[in-house]
Design a protein around this nucleic acid. Structure first.
Length: 296
DNA sequence: TAATACATCCGTCAATAGCC
DNA sequence: GGCTATTGACGGATGTATTA
């Protein structure tokens, strides 16, 4: 059995005990309850946060208590959805100063997708089969970003050259790649289709007319309104799906980032409240000592 | 040292919230 | 009501720690 296959087998068996599931349980029951708990008990200064082990115990207890035949719908009813982390955190921050708010719109460091956050109003964003993003702004400006790089470092501006003898109806675009021989060509006959050509180490992209035969693994974009044939409709559906997946991929990343931030804020809040609680207890003890009648 | 257990990240799907 | 954003759930991939 291969390593991968073995892991697959194990995953299915230990699924409910992994950290991710604990995290999920924490999302649904504990983290949620911490949020409610902290806001409900903040006035008293008492707060308790279950450990991960406790969370796992809670999850196990719940599983054993409930019948195994609980279907997903019923579970979803029980685990009703709560507002977004942003909303919860902002509500918390409005109650207590010192808790940072999650920004509605991310500044330069966070955008969706991150590497093309600073580009000038792209009309279309595509992702190639290698994961790179290609954005076509109004006017035909093209920008490419590599998913692995941070911020805008992966952003590479293209410059129109119109040099040589381009194919009929096409404009050759070039951009200066990192390596000396990394020049890539882009054919832009109206920004209809972006094609990643089959290559070796260095990927190439083409933007072709929608009627051009496309190689495999192409993320294509056809202008809406000009779709008639079933093939074009299928291609449009594929394109929409790719776009939806890309957006959801970025949304999931952003959601996880917010979730981490949310949990961090709750943890820091717990720490602050614990210190406050300790101080209050000490103060109470001091007052007791002062006020208690002395016995000689 | 291989096998196993655990932790973490990621992509995707689906349900739901919320806006227009 | 339709559309988009958000997020829980699931499973795969991979890295690290532990154990026999």
């Amino acid at each position: 059995m291969s390593k991968c296959g073995r892991k697959k087998y194990m995953r299915t068996n230990v699924r409910h005990m992994t950290m991710e599931t604990v995290e999920s349980q924490q999302d649904r029951s504990v983290t949620h309850s911490v949020a409610e708990h902290s806001s409900a008990h903040m006035q008293t200064g008492q707060i308790s946060v279950p450990t991960l082990a406790q969370v796992a115990t809670i999850a196990e207890t719940d599983d054993s208590a409930e019948s195994e035949v609980i279907d997903s719908h019923k579970r979803r009813e029980i685990l009703s959805r709560r507002p977004s982390y942003r909303k919860i955190l902002n509500e918390l921050s409005s109650d207590v100063p010192g808790i940072p708010k999650i920004e509605e719109e991310k500044s330069e460091e966070e955008g969706t997708p991150p590497n093309i956050a600073t580009m000038a109003v792209p009309t279309s964003i595509y992702q190639t089969s290698t994961g790179q993003y290609i954005a076509i702004a109004q006017g035909g400006a093209i920008q490419i970003s590599n998913p692995g790089s941070d911020g805008v470092q992966g952003l590479q501006a293209l410059t129109m050259t119109n040099s040589g003898a381009p194919p009929p109806g096409a404009t050759i675009v070039q951009y200066a790649a990192q390596s000396a021989d990394g020049t890539q060509q882009f054919f832009v006959p109206g920004s209809q289709v972006v094609v990643q050509a089959a290559t070796g180490d260095m990927p190439t992209y083409q933007i072709r007319a929608p009627t051009t035969a496309l190689p495999q693994g192409v993320v294509m974009a056809a202008s809406p309104g000009s779709l008639h044939s079933p093939q074009q409709l299928a291609e449009e559906a594929t394109r929409k799906r790719e776009l939806r997946l890309m957006k959801n991929r970025e949304a999931a990343k952003e959601c996880r980032r917010r979730k981490k931030e949310y949990v961090k804020c709750l943890e820091s809040r717990v720490a602050v409240l614990e210190v406050q609680n300790k101080k209050l207890i000490e103060e109470l003890e001091t007052l007791k000592d002062i006020c208690s009648p002395k016995t000689d």
